[in-house]
Design a protein around this nucleic acid. Structure first.
Length: 428
RNA sequence: GGAGGGGUGGCGGAGCCUGGUUGAACGCACCGGUCUUGAAAACCGGCAUACCUUUACGGGUAUCGUGGGUUCGAAUCCCACCCCCUCCGCCA
């Protein structure tokens, strides 16, 4: 959420941001400002009455001590009346407060000035492309056929045991998963990230902290009986790790990496482009998270992006980098890149990483702060995260781009020692 | 799952039975100052967070796990929930 004071001072800027993000016409901002004015006047009124009441109670205490019972009784009677008024004021003030908070949660983050204004995915800026498309002297086979051919995954039994979108990985398929996870984690640790193994379910406060709640509850599987949510990404536990904390300045930056399965309901997304590994309810991902000082967050964003791109280059996968336009970047982000790999048989781009700077938007809600050298008041930090990387589509791209005429898949050199062989399906 | 104990400021730790200048003793840590050639010690002072208000200085309100309640007044009494610890049981 945004700083209320910031919205007060920059109402027009926030309205423009909402329009550019395609979230309403900014009328919400005026509504919020009105509600806030009401809230503040109610707070003042309540506090005045409270002051009066506190003073009265103190005076009664003094009278009782001195044994002046009659005077105390008189004061008590007077104070009781005050209390009724206070109760009413407190109730309306609380309502006003809740209203402001609810409205505040509906105001999206303001895009960074470098973000292109646009409404649709077509208006995302293709900022960079790397690698060349493979050329085959045979018909390129889609990854689901390759998986089947080498018995690397079992979708049918996954459907039987759990449901669509929950495949089993088998044989070399399972081993390839493990190889990729280790590769991604080792690369992250070498780049200075601390490895974390996080809980796979989180409570409601955490889901709210990173912005999955309210609004996006359809995204998550829920263990209703216990009030817990299965994580849609490791971003949720890794960022909430420091909820309600105040860092010393020299503790920053903090950089975490974590592997977790991710669970997404993906309600209503059935149809095309969901074949094979394109879109699953459960998938594996290594996530990268940064906690940084505000002045460092845009450098951190580029570092994060650079790290993720390095992984794709080491995997020898042609990819492109998109700078997301205002309309396609989401509610909580200030700036976001997507990395997409080329799927050589499907002949389409698959998103494998999403790298975002949230500035203070998440951290404010989670009250993650730091004390700047020589400053009394703690400041809100900036948070960022990025995938490094999401597995299924990487597997799809590896299989499709690196397939050989003999049906085997030649693995990129960086991955071979993790996989323990130079190719998948060596025996044909 | 059963029985008991406990959650207080950056940390430790009083206060709770017997409600009344207790936002909270005391100690440690930390910051500033005096002293000192320098340091240590000693001494003096400062040292939570959010919000409201004020041009500013300042003033005010709330917060002792969380949320309700009792009361003129709650860290202190009552209820619910969450978390931690010890013992027993069960179990990877």
């Amino acid at each position: 959420m945004l700083d209320l004071q910031f919205i007060r001072d920059n109402a027009d800027c926030v309205k423009t941001a909402m329009v550019n993000k395609g979230i309403g016409d900014g009328a919400l901002v005026d509504e919020l400002l009105r509600a806030d004015e009401e809230r503040r006047s109610l707070i003042s009124a309540t506090q005045e009455t409270q002051t009066e009441s506190n003073a009265a109670a103190k005076a009664i205490g003094a009278l009782m001590k001195e044994g002046r019972k009659d005077e105390a009784q008189e004061a008590i009677a007077k104070s009781s009346k005050l209390k009724e008024r206070l109760k009413d004021l407190e109730d309306t003030q609380k309502q006003a407060q809740e209203r402001v908070e609810a409205l505040l949660l509906e105001i999206p983050n303001v895009p960074h000035e470098s973000v292109p204004v646009g409404r649709t995915p077509e208006e995302n800026e293709i900022a960079f492309e790397w690698g060349t498309f493979p050329s085959f002297d045979f018909e390129a086979i889609p990854h689901w056929e390759i998986l089947d051919h080498h018995s690397m995954a079992d979708f049918d039994r996954g459907s039987k045991v759990t449901g669509a979108g929950f495949p089993f990985y088998t044989n070399e398929g399972a081993k390839l998963q493990r190889a990729l996870i280790n590769f991604f984690l080792d690369e992250a640790v070498a780049a200075g990230y601390m490895e974390i193994q996080a809980p796979l379910v989180v409570n409601e406060d955490s889901a709210r902290g990173t912005g999955q709640l309210p609004d996006k509850e359809d995204l998550m599987y829920e263990a209703q009986r216990d009030g817990l949510y299965m994580i849609p990404t490791a971003e949720v536990p890794l960022t909430n790790l420091h909820r309600d904390e105040i860092f010393a300045e020299d503790a920053l930056p903090i950089r975490y990496c974590g592997y977790t399965p991710c669970f997404r309901r993906e309600a209503g997304s059935y149809g095309k482009d969901v074949r094979g590994l394109n879109r699953l309810h459960q998938f594996d991902k290594v996530e990268l998270v940064h906690f940084v000082r505000p002045e460092d967050s845009y450098d951190a964003l580029e570092q994060l992006r650079e790290h993720a791109e390095q992984l794709l280059q080491k995997l020898e996968l042609p990819y492109r980098r998109l700078l997301m336009c205002t309309g396609d970047m989401g509610f909580t982000q200030a700036k976001k890149y997507d990395l997409e790999v080329w799927s050589a048989a499907q002949k389409l781009w698959l998103e494998v990483s999403s790298i975002s700077n949230f500035e203070s938007f998440q951290a404010r809600r989670m009250m993650i702060r730091y004390r700047a050298e020589g400053e009394k008041k703690p400041r809100i930090i900036h948070t960022l995260n990025g995938s490094g990387l999401a597995l299924p589509r990487i597997v799809a791209a590896l299989l499709e781009n690196h397939q050989q005429a003999d049906g085997s898949i030649l693995l990129p050199e960086a991955l071979q020692r993790y996989f323990g062989a130079d190719r998948v399906g060596a025996t044909g």
